[in-house]
Design a protein around this nucleic acid. Structure first.
Lengths: 227, 227
DNA sequence: GGGAAATTAAAACACCTGTTTGAATCGGTC
DNA sequence: GACCGATTCAAACAGGTGTTTTAATTTCCC
């Protein structure tokens, strides 16, 4: 009624919703247009009519996932650097795992990163780059600028890695940590843990950086003679 | 010459090598038999002749990756629990990232875990289950049995997550941590970092568990009012 | 209600997929 | 050299893929 094409919006939305779910489950290559249209309850040709082709539909799905990720921005989180880092982790984990939102929002992005298509560069990196940069800067504040750029990267990757693992290797998580999945506030529990775990490691790094003589010389640099 | 079927062994091996590389790059569903046979320089029908079908070849590839992962076992690593945990992390990271081995060994398993096929249960979990169990027990020793089963799971997942991230989200790692990839001993640097990061977090947990009154009450359990 | 545009529907298209076929070639043995 | 099983090869197969086509239907405006 409001737009010149009322039905168009509806079926487009239904296709995107169905496509998001299937893409998140089977990846771009593993998904067929017939799976999408069947799930959406629309005709097979609808995808090529409303979107140009399968690739463009995929881009639209990624864009939608990206759009819903903008509220992860950490500018509005109050408190000191540590609290803001905890806040980011909480939001990020919820974005990835919260069943309230369409389950595919986080997973379709994680899948695209582990199995990239040409869409990776134009969409995903646009989303992750500022996020990564902000988190990296935040970590720098937590350790009071005592880390080198390379160390900042390692810290950031450790934090991202912990978060993404739950959605990227879900079968393993569900198989191994069986009683964790039964926890009532599972997501909150995970988020709090990753925050505790990471903050503790960063504090330890800052402490060792501030006292030039490490408490146990050689421990941090000990390399193992293996293999 | 040695076996009753000299050529058979050779082309089988070439197919497995080529298939491993392609499967690791594009996943099971995204890989075509023609890609494999072209890369291996063998006839198209060779796959169905030497292996029954594509699925069985995939299982053989996973089995090969699993076979080469057996030397990650941590029984033979000397030292205390902390040193053994560091040793495991080092071996695991090298298994995933070391370009010396066929690059697909770790990645084909990581891909299978993020995008499972029916082969997941019968191969991958056979490999990861004992690994996970051992690491979990090792963590228990590091924190001197002060962690609940659920907390042990969270710790183990944090460590695995950090390691797997580098191979699972490789595009992001390469794009973001640019100068890390230029580091000469990149893999050793990563392994050492994950060890430091995790051990520090575990030590902090043990310290707080041993002194019943936490140094800053409320910090560990503080939940953020976001969204 | 008539008519033009937008949308849906069914069918077909060309192409690629995994797999099979049957003949050609190779390897060693008598 | 002739034989025979094992292996390779080119060709073809049935089925599924993304996409296009063409007609039917709906929607909205006059």
């Amino acid at each position: 009624m409001q737009a010149p094409n009322p039905k168009r919006e509806e079926t487009s939305a239904r296709i995107i919703a169905a496509a998001g779910a299937v893409f998140a489950e089977r990846g771009f290559r593993g998904t067929t247009i017939r799976q999408i249209t069947t799930r959406a309850g629309v005709n097979l040709a609808a995808v090529n009519y409303h979107f140009r082709d399968k690739a463009e539909l995929y881009v639209r799905v990624l864009r939608e996932a990206k759009r819903c990720a903008t509220d992860i921005i950490i500018d509005d989180i109050p408190g000191d650097a540590e609290a803001r880092l905890r806040g980011f982790i909480d939001r990020f984990v919820r974005y990835l795992l919260d069943p309230e939102r369409p389950a595919w929002h986080g997973r379709v992005i994680a899948l695209e990163m582990s199995n990239p298509t040409p869409a990776l560069g134009v969409i995903i990196l646009e989303l992750t780059s500022p996020l990564y940069r902000d988190v990296r800067a935040l970590i720098g504040k937590v350790v009071e600028d005592s880390a080198s750029p390379r160390e900042l990267d390692l810290f950031a990757l450790s934090i991202f890695g912990q978060c993404v693992f739950y959605v990227n290797s879900r079968p393993l998580v569900e198989q191994m940590a069986t009683d964790l999945n039964k926890t009532p506030d599972r997501i909150g529990r995970i988020s709090t843990h990753i925050g505790d775990f990471s903050i503790a490691a960063l504090h330890d790094f800052r402490r060792q950086a501030n006292q030039p003589r490490p408490r146990a010389a050689g421990v941090r640099t000990k390399r193992l003679a293996l293999r």
